[in-house]
Design a binder for these strands. Structure first.
Lengths: 209, 209, 209, 209
DNA sequence: GATGAATGAGGGTTCATTCAT
DNA sequence: AATGAATGAACCCTCATTCAT
């Protein structure tokens, strides 16, 4: 995972910031974990704050990139939602510390304007996605922020449970939780149907009221 | 909320630990926020770590206490689930910082054995609750830890969204999200029914396979 | 010389900044010399830079205050000049490190606006003094800055020679150097005269050419 | 001024040591200013201290060399003094940073025995010069160190005033200040005479008392 | 020879904790 | 009991120096 020194430092920082919080881990600790001297960090990052921002941006960018990468607005809502859920699984499965770090440090005081801008961009994409699936009528009419909070919060819960050792990420979890989260989002009185049907019958899904 | 000095200190610490993390806030800062001198904290708590543990235990105990306080194992699953969801709403609505603190600092390295024991006790209660509602057949057959993670994670998502100013806690949110979370937990092919029916038809809910 | 801790710190800093330059002496060194812990300095001064500025201002103010304190514009030029020379002697005799510090750190990059303003104020007073004594015709018609440079530079030379152990400050030095400096300043073809005579018999002293 | 790399390094170090003090400037800064890599300095100078000493010695040697280069003990005191004053002007005019560096770092703690020896040699030459001109009776009978301090201090004052932008070095300054400094040194009651006469009448200049 | 990345001791500064008041 | 000045270890960061390239 770590090729150059900068990467080794970023990797070590990611793990330690996630485990011990930003303020809770000393630069020499990160240096040790990265296998470099304390001073070396400063050849790559001008300060601890800059390191944390670089870290945040790096992962947030990857996160944004893969989250809606395969989304197809022409598809039916359920597969779209499950695809995003699957993308979360893929991302957090491969980079649990990164996912956790991004969630935990969402509004950290040391994040600079660029980092916040990136975060805001993701927020907008998420709102656009939710609004888009809501427009089909298959998804609850709640405020987008609310559904995002439930959806993302639920997934974050899984990641934390995994980190705590309570559960493990596998295909069965992915399938079960994907179904569960769809039920959470689905308009209760809408014809939900199975995977196969949803795709073929989007037009029949009409809100009753 | 703050009666004696100890309470003032605990209140200040709660807010600041939640806002700035444990390592990110200095004792004099807590003292200032509590309106006492730095040295005074040490008359009530032997150390910063002890203060954090006292804080954690105080709120975790209240949390545990109110979470399943009104649970009635004889009731139907849906109202039982919604009652717990409502208890979360009540608790987090009244003490958002406390809820957030408990969630964030769940596995903090400074928590001592007693704090962890308390945490484990809540975990057990939660597992027992989930197992209990699963036994009726109305709730998904997933591992309890998984459902707890989704359920609690989703609620935590709401609290964070509220803190970020994206949503606000009100009755409509409570109703909407209560319904959504039930759908997340409910056995997909079970007769979900309305609130009133759920209670009367638990026995008919049979898994297909 | 040092009463409270702040004074002890200022005294230690004065001596060490003078001996080893600002960048050349570490805060713990100052703390040791002041007989306090390193952290204690920061209860009185927010930073090393602030300490240096406080030091500069403290002494510059005293310096300005005593330099022209006894100057009487109605007096004859020579006694006025010698009074200032005497004031320098008194000040530098009592506080050699302070005088040296003020001279050496005159344009130090860490001096803030207030410190520079104080310095500029002294410069103006000096120019006003020189201009005033020049107006009598008894002092060279050179630019004020030039005469000040020579005058103050000569005195600084004495202080450095004293610090190096080459000379010692006593009444005979004061008298000799006071006379010498007057000769440096005096208009060459002006009636110089002795101390007593200067005032009453200027006209009898005729240059040969 | 910079031929090889060593010279470039010395030139950069001279300017920076003078501007920011020895402890106040980092080796990479000097390297940058010299247009070489940090490590390259160590191919020419074993350490920062050694670099500073080399610098000090280089300039002190040139300084000593040119200060009394044209002195002719057979000449009259006034022209001899003014020649030295002129040599100072030439040296400091051509190398203001060098002059300033030599004066400021006179007793710097990092100077080694050789550097101090060189400094002592100059001191001796200066004392010899002063003693020599005093013997003619045309110069004050004060201790040589005292006259040197006044003389050199006055000149240093001019250099500092120039650096600060208060004055500029030109022929009129040289003439005016040369006259002034002679008046400072001249025996008050001795026949001072003009330039031309002084030279022809050294033997007649007898102290009266 | 020259480079500049890497080192780690030491710099300025903060902060958990103590203790005289 | 309460204070807050004082402490010094530990923090983030700099920099003289080294060494693989």
């Amino acid at each position: 995972m770590a090729d150059g020194k900068a990467d080794a430092i970023l990797d070590a920082a990611l793990r330690l910031f996630d485990e011990r919080t930003y303020a809770g881990c000393a630069m020499p600790l990160i240096a040790d974990a990265a296998g470099v001297a304390a001073g070396t960090i400063y050849r790559y990052f001008p300060s601890k704050e800059a390191l944390a921002n670089a870290l945040y941006r790096q992962w947030k960018a990857r996160y944004v990139e893969c989250l809606f990468a395969d989304d197809d607005p022409g598809e039916a809502p359920r597969p779209r939602v499950e695809r995003v859920w699957g993308a979360l699984f893929d991302f957090a499965g491969a980079h649990p510390a990164a996912f956790s770090f991004l969630e935990t440090h969402q509004h950290a005081p040391y994040l600079d304007a660029d980092s916040r801008a990136l975060s805001a961009r993701l927020d907008k994409l998420a709102v656009a996605f939710v609004t888009s699936v809501q427009e089909t009528g298959a998804v609850r009419a709640a405020p987008a922020a609310e559904l995002i909070a439930l959806f993302l919060g639920a997934f974050t819960g899984l990641v934390k449970a995994r980190t705590a050792g309570y559960i493990s990420f596998d295909d069965s979890l992915r399938a079960r939780s994907g179904d569960a989260i769809w039920q959470l989002l689905a308009r209760p009185d809408a014809p939900t149907g199975g995977h196969l049907m949803t795709r073929s019958l989007p037009l029949t899904t009409r809100p009753r009221r």
